[in-house]
Each structure stands twice: as structure tokens, then as C-alpha cells.
Amino acid sequence: MAVCIAIIGKENAPKYVACTEKDQELDFHYKVHSSLDIIEEKLSATSLTKGTDLREQCLGLLYATEEHKIYGYVTNTKIKIVIVIDANHTGLRDNEIRAMFRKLHGAYADAVCNPFYIPGDPITSKKFCETVHGLLVKS
């Protein structure tokens, strides 16, 4: 399961970052921030080639380090979802990652559907947090 989940807004500012290890939080911030490079690269690559299926929101593996694998997902409104997986957790299949992304996307959509939520603000929804923490590895 994931060790870090991040929701990043249209303008690349983080809206929500959660991870299992509090003391590594900053480290994850760096990783997720760097992954934005690759997300942008992939998005510009798809926008350049015409006729590609724009509905494909899952960007797959963005990059990997010795310890972690970082997966990306982008919604049609350019909200980015990044999941960091422990590299030692090898049993995870691609479709499981996709399922996680879809679940997060759904939870995000629910959170921003709240009429009291101001678009662009960090997400503070309790329900959303519960969903995210459900996807994070219990350490």
C-alpha cells in the first residue's frame, strides 16, 4: 500500500499531503514535488501527439528510487494525485494502483462537491482524510 498520498492543485501547489511516517514528511514533499516535473512532461507529451486518448488519466509510474515508486494520476481539471509506494512492496499490481487512484479521485470529487469548500483551498474534509488514511500503510 501507499506510504504517501498527495493531492496537488492545478497550479502545482499542494492541496493535501499525507504520509505514514511523520518524520519523513518533508522528504516525501521533495519527492512529490520533483515528480511534478515528470507529470508535466507526460502531460505535454500527450497534448502534443494528437488523437491520443485524453481520458487516460493514470500516468503510471513516474519514477522510482531505491526505496520508493511514485505513481501519478491527473484529472481533467489538472488536479494531480501522486501515490508513493514502498519499493519493497512488490506484490502491488498495476490495476491495484489504478483502483487506488480512482478511489482517491472519487473521494476528492466528493470533498470538493461540498458547497462550503472553496476551490483552491487545502482539503480538510474528514471523510477525505479517512479515505486517504485507509489507503496508507499502517505503520
Binding site: 501547489a13 518533508l26 514535488h33
Partner: peptide
Amino acid sequence: CYEQDGWKQLAAG
């Protein structure tokens, strides 16, 4: 770079 992207924690560091 961090400020531009709005990553406040990184910017703080």
C-alpha cells in the same frame, strides 16, 4: 521554485 509552486513547507526549509 518552491514559492512559485506554493510548496510552503519546502520553502520554509
